[in-house]
Design a protein around this nucleic acid. Structure first.
Length: 667
DNA sequence: GCATACCGTTTTTTT
DNA sequence: AACGGTATGC
């Protein structure tokens, strides 16, 4: 073994792990594999996370130091779960690893080394919506009438095109031709738009999500002396959900792990992020890019009943041929009930069936914690939420209004961003339009005026905002508010050197915004409570920039104020967010053609990813699986009748049993 | 020219 | 429910 020797774990601090007895043969082989490029093909429910976490534990037991391990995941949830499990297993605290999403790690590197590629250290991060309107402003700067022409893409699709190009490392032209042929008429304009977009971001010292990856790659390519330090340091790179990496991320992984000590774990059948540029070719060609790759297959399924696996395997049988690695999940658990297909009249009856079944399950002694309801898109949860609330059933939903996306929370975040980076025009804009008689246009005008005044008179931007010449231009109705807001900002800025982040947040709440909040919202008190918990959140950070990045990158935090953490609750979630999770009882709702798969994907002819998504959904279930669909769609426009999802129609009929609701009420 | 009220439309998935 | 577009009023 040529593992590099690091600090041994404290002997006796944690019980030694008996890898042989705690893992099956397949897992054991992967966990204890010799160093070198490793590709782990792990089917759903086969213990993928287990393998990855035991691998980390194994490395530590061989004397590898936590600081020598880089662990990349795709979502925040996965990162959190992984680090927690490593800690539970070995006692090595999560914060001793470099572990997190690609975007987090990118951010961390850029805060320290961005200056090597001309990125100012005080940059702030735009969220998706802000990036879109920033792009909109950019385009309008070049072409005031571009968006007037209805045939041109709106800012959001335009932003997707540019983002897709960056994530797939294709030219804009290639991207449009292959992914967005409907926009071919704007191809000649795109390079110009993208270039100015990049330039303006730089001017205002803001970055979008893609920048966190792109600048990281630039660091690898243009600052080799810096990256070499990390390449030497990270003896082992582990990548979870490798099938969901896009070209940009794959390049980053390859660039960081120049020693080829990579363990990539994934399952091409679960690639569900191609709309973000994910390319499961990455996993298929991994062995080509890393000569000497050892492939391990882990296919024994410990999660689901044979009946559920039979259905799942049949979903993959219907995949168009020729793609991906062959695979079949092997059941290991005893037989259980067959999956049920439940047609309902409409989404309301669908919701009511769920509720009646829910009561049956709790009567049988199931904890609500073990029950999940999955759907394709957030809006499908709406009826269900209404009915659940009526029935007084608490639920946890990983969607809807997320904590950090609520207006008042974002307003405070805008304060903070503006305080730390006054060039962050989007943050300023958000604050300015809160003032009476200041809208989009006035906000922009005032910003530009202050910006040039600051330049010519050598004031700071915030000081300039309070100069007579600027205040003169503020609409009369907004004048008092303007002054008060800017003074609050100054207070906050002045406190940066000697106050921790939570105190600064507190200043924002006590300042102008506190008064504004009272007037603006009827539920002032509950919103103020949110802001107080934001102060608490800030208390966990020493560095405000870290906290802000965390907030913007971590937008899946659940906001269930109504439910206290202790109470067991069922879970409502999109299939995407359910990936990597498992539940005893899973209901999938809206399984009608046009809803799952979505109409749009049918029209675009890209149905395979929807099928994989269905596969992901089904394989979340351990014991019982309920497949529901409404027979009519009463939402939006004329009532349309729906047929069951083509993914169900394709299945052999012995894979499920159809239940008629009328007979089954009161199960 | 700008703010705002009102109306109809439209929902993918996440960092 | 959130967004975008349009009409109206300042």
């Amino acid at each position: 073994m040529d593992y590099v020797i690091g600090n041994q774990l404290q002997p006796g601090s944690f019980p030694p792990i008996d890898f042989r007895s705690e893992l099956n043969d397949e897992q054991f082989a992967a966990v204890t594999a010799e160093p070198g490029p490793l590709l782990i093909l792990a089917g759903a429910g086969s213990g993928k996370t287990r393998t990855l976490t035991y691998r980390v534990a194994y490395l530590l037991s061989k004397g590898v130091d936590p600081s020598e391990i880089l662990l990349l995941t795709f979502t925040n949830k996965a990162a959190k779960e992984m680090l927690q499990r490593v800690e539970d297993l070995t006692g090595a605290e999560g914060n001793r690893f470099w572990g997190g999403t690609f975007h987090h790690i990118g951010h961390r590197l850029l805060r320290s080394h961005g200056n090597a590629i001309d990125l100012n250290r005080s940059f702030t991060i735009l969220d998706a919506g802000e990036a879109e309107s920033f792009l909109k402003d950019t385009v309008e700067e070049l072409d005031t009438v571009f968006f007037k022409d209805k045939a041109n893409p709106r800012p959001k699709p335009l932003s997707s095109v540019i983002s897709m190009a960056r994530n797939t490392c294709l030219s804009l032209e290639e991207t449009v031709v292959t992914h967005f042929p409907q926009y071919d008429r704007v191809i000649p304009r795109l390079d110009e738009f993208a270039a100015l977009y990049a330039k303006r971001k730089r001017k205002h010292q803001v970055v979008d999500y893609d920048d966190l990856l792109e600048y990281w790659l630039r660091l690898i390519e243009e600052a080799p002396e810096i990256i070499a330090r990390y390449q030497n340091r990270f003896k082992h790179t582990l990548v979870d959900e490798y099938q969901d990496t896009n070209t940009l991320q794959a390049k980053i992984v390859d660039g960081m792990a120049s020693n080829h000590q990579i363990m990539a774990v994934g399952d091409d059948a679960q690639c569900i992020y191609s709309w973000r540029g994910a390319n499961f070719e990455n996993i298929l060609t991994f062995p080509d890019r890393h000569p000497g790759t050892t492939i391990h297959r882990i296919e024994t399924n410990y999660r689901s009943s044979p009946e559920i696996l039979y259905l799942a395997n049949n979903i993959l049988q219907n995949q168009t041929e020729g793609k991906g690695f062959e695979k079949e999940l092997r059941a290991s658990r005893p037989s259980n009930t067959i999956p049920y297909l439940i047609p309902s009249i409409d989404t309301r009856e669908q919701a009511r069936f769920i509720i009646s079944r829910l009561q049956g399950l709790t009567d049988e002694g199931r904890s609500p914690n073990d029950i999940a309801i999955l759907y394709r898109a957030h809006f499908q949860a709406l009826d269900l939420q209404i009915e659940l609330s009526k029935a007084n059933i608490p639920y946890r939903i990983t969607s809807g209004v997320r904590f950090f996306e609520q207006a008042h929370v974002r307003d405070i975040v805008a304060h903070l961003r503006f305080v730390y980076n006054p060039t962050d025009i989007m943050a300023f804009h958000r604050l300015a339009i809160l003032l009476p008689k200041i809208g989009d246009k006035s906000a922009r005008k005032l910003y530009n005026l202050a910006f040039s005044l600051a330049e010519s008179e050598q004031h700071s931007l915030v000081d300039a905002m309070l100069q007579k010449d600027i205040i003169k231009k503020v609409p009369k109705a907004a004048k008092d508010d303007w002054i008060s807001l800017m003074e609050t900002i100054q207070d906050m800025q002045a406190s940066i050197p000697n106050q921790p982040p939570d105190e600064i947040v507190q200043l924002a709440i006590e300042g102008w915004y506190g008064l504004y909040l009272q007037g603006a919202y009827a539920n002032y008190m509950s919103r103020l409570d949110d802001l107080k918990s934001l102060v608490g959140f800030a208390g966990r950070y020493d560095d405000m920039q870290d906290m802000l990045a965390q907030i913007i990158l971590l937008n899946s935090e659940i906001s269930d104020r109504s439910v206290d953490d202790q109470e067991p609750t069922i879970r409502l979630t999109t299939v995407h967010q359910a990936k990597g999770l498992e539940f005893d009882i899973v209901s999938i709702i809206g399984l009608a053609d046009g809803l799952f798969p979505l109409r749009r994907t049918i029209e675009e002819g890209d149905i395979e990813e929807e099928r994989r998504l269905f596969y992901v959904a089904v394989t979340r279930a351990r014991d019982e699986l309920y497949l529901l669909y409404p027979r009519v769609n009463t939402k939006g426009g004329p009532v349309m009748s729906l047929s069951p999802s083509r993914f169900i129609q394709e299945l052999p009929t012995d894979a499920y049993e159809t239940v008629r609701i009328r007979r089954s009420y009161g199960w």
